[in-house]
């Protein structure tokens, strides 16, 4: 199984742990992720303005390169995935943008949206299969109560992201089940963590994080798992700014748990002091 792989800037800097664990786990699962040679920053937010095409170019270059390689494009960072997936949808549906972008890029073969981009979790679910994944687990996370945190970027807008049911997703819970862990359902798992506000509206973002973490905690979670470097930072850092002043729950990337369940690393720390 072989895919083109788009890392994005954050995975090369502040979220190296996410990339390291993801690549190590993929290798152990017999999945080849080939990093694209000339990827560029995706632009971080999907632009709604159609009259500036510059922000779409990086996504299209990567999508076209994957197409030329005859491979699906795999992402790990939720924000990159959001931007590339929506850009791909836009170029498929908006003739004007499609013409402008191709007119500018002058690719050997025009890019019309025929490629496909999938998130690492989708790769596990749809390409490998969670049943197959469960077969390969060496150190099942039996008895571990873990709460999935989805965030916004993978789920919404649901029709375009087509990732899962936006109000009632299950992909991360199914993933946890394959790893042998117990998934903890709590009502805030799809609520926004407010990371875009943590730069200039820290208090709002802190309140949002507190709600998410304390809800997961009250439903019996020992740890949170996420798939987004931004949420990850926010959930970790802003927990420190809550009235308790220290984190209530540890937060992991889903790939860290995968790595552990595949027997590639020591057990991750969880809150044991609770019940």
């Amino acid at each position: 199984m072989r895919f083109s792989y788009y890392p994005g800037c954050t995975l090369k800097t502040t979220a190296t742990e996410l990339e390291r664990s993801a690549l190590k786990a993929a290798k152990a699962l017999g999945i080849e992720l080939v990093e694209q040679k000339e990827w560029q920053c995706c632009g971080a937010v999907f632009p709604l303005v159609r009259d500036e095409i510059a922000a779409f170019l990086s996504s299209i270059r990567s999508l076209a390169a994957a197409r030329d390689a005859g491979e699906k494009l795999v992402t790990i960072c939720a924000a990159c995935h959001h931007v590339i997936k929506r850009t791909n949808h836009l170029i498929k549906t908006d003739t004007e943008v499609r013409e402008k972008v191709n007119g500018y890029l002058q690719l050997e073969t025009s890019y019309l949206g025929e490629g496909s981009v999938i998130h690492y979790l989708e790769m596990l679910r749809d390409e490998l299969g969670f049943d197959e994944l469960a077969q390969k687990i060496k150190q099942p996370l039996t008895g571990r109560k873990i709460a999935a945190y989805y965030g916004c970027l993978l789920l919404r807008p649901a029709a375009i992201m087509a990732f899962d049911n936006a109000e009632n997703p299950r992909i991360i819970e199914d993933f946890l089940f394959a790893l042998g862990a117990t998934a903890v359902y709590y009502p805030y798992r799809t609520e926004c963590c407010g990371v875009y506000l943590s730069l200039n509206n820290t208090q709002i973002a802190t309140d949002m994080v507190e709600k998410i973490v304390s809800s997961a905690f009250s439903y019996g979670a020992e740890a949170l798992v996420d798939a987004c470097p931004l949420c990850h930072y926010n959930l970790l850092e802003l927990q420190k700014k809550t009235p308790q002043g220290k984190p209530l729950l540890p937060v992991y990337y889903f790939t860290e748990l995968l790595e552990e369940a595949l027997g590639l690393k020591e057990q991750t720390a969880v809150r044991k002091d609770r019940k």
């Binding site: 049911n165 936006a166 109000e167 009632n168 359902y185 009502p187 799809t190």
Partner: peptide, 11 residues
């Protein structure tokens, strides 16, 4: 009501 997860029907 499967499409209306925010109301939590069935949950």
């Amino acid at each position: 009501l499967d499409e209306f997860g925010e109301f939590g029907y069935g949950k």
